[in-house]
Computed example of a mutant assay.
Amino acid sequence: MKIMMLALLPAALLTGCTPRIEVAAPEEPITINMNVKIEHEIHIKVDKDVEALLKNRSDLF
């Protein structure tokens, strides 16, 4: 009986040392803030000939 207990003792001690990994969902939901303000300005430089053409032919665009 003592031999059997001595054989099981190391096995019992080693099972207590096994690592445990736990995956759990968070308690509160994940929120992503997407409040983004985008501003831009476009500056176009044109030659005087092109500017005159655009003024005379407004049907181009």
Rank of each mutant, 00 (worst) to 15 (best):
Met34Lys: 12
Leu53Lys: 12
Ala12Ile: 14
Arg20Phe: 06
Lys45Asn: 09
Glu27Met: 10
Gly16Lys: 06
Ala7Val: 11
Cys17Tyr: 08
Arg20Tyr: 06
Ile44Asn: 08
Ala12Arg: 01
Pro19Arg: 05
Pro26Leu: 03
Ala11Pro: 00
Thr15Met: 11
Arg20His: 10
Asn35Asp: 14
Ile38Lys: 02
Ile42Asp: 08
Lys45Val: 02
Glu27Lys: 13
Ile38Val: 15
His40Glu: 10
Ser58Ile: 02
Glu39Ile: 07
Met4Thr: 03
Lys55Gln: 12
Thr31Gly: 10
Leu53Tyr: 14
Met5Lys: 06
Met34Tyr: 10
Met34Phe: 11
Asp59Val: 01
Lys45Ala: 11
Pro19Tyr: 09
Glu51Ala: 14
Leu8Cys: 05
Ile38Asn: 01
Phe61Trp: 05
Met5Gln: 05
Thr31Tyr: 14
Glu22Val: 10
Met34Thr: 13
Met4Pro: 00
Ala7Pro: 00
Thr18Cys: 03
Ile21Gly: 01
Leu6Arg: 08
Glu28Val: 13
Ile3Asn: 07
Asn35Cys: 04
Met5Ala: 09
Ala25His: 05
Ala11Trp: 08
Asp49Pro: 06
Ile42Met: 06
Ala11Ile: 12
Glu41Tyr: 01
Ala11Lys: 01
Pro29Gln: 02
Asn35Leu: 05
Glu39Gln: 10
His40Thr: 09
Met4Asp: 02
Leu9Val: 07
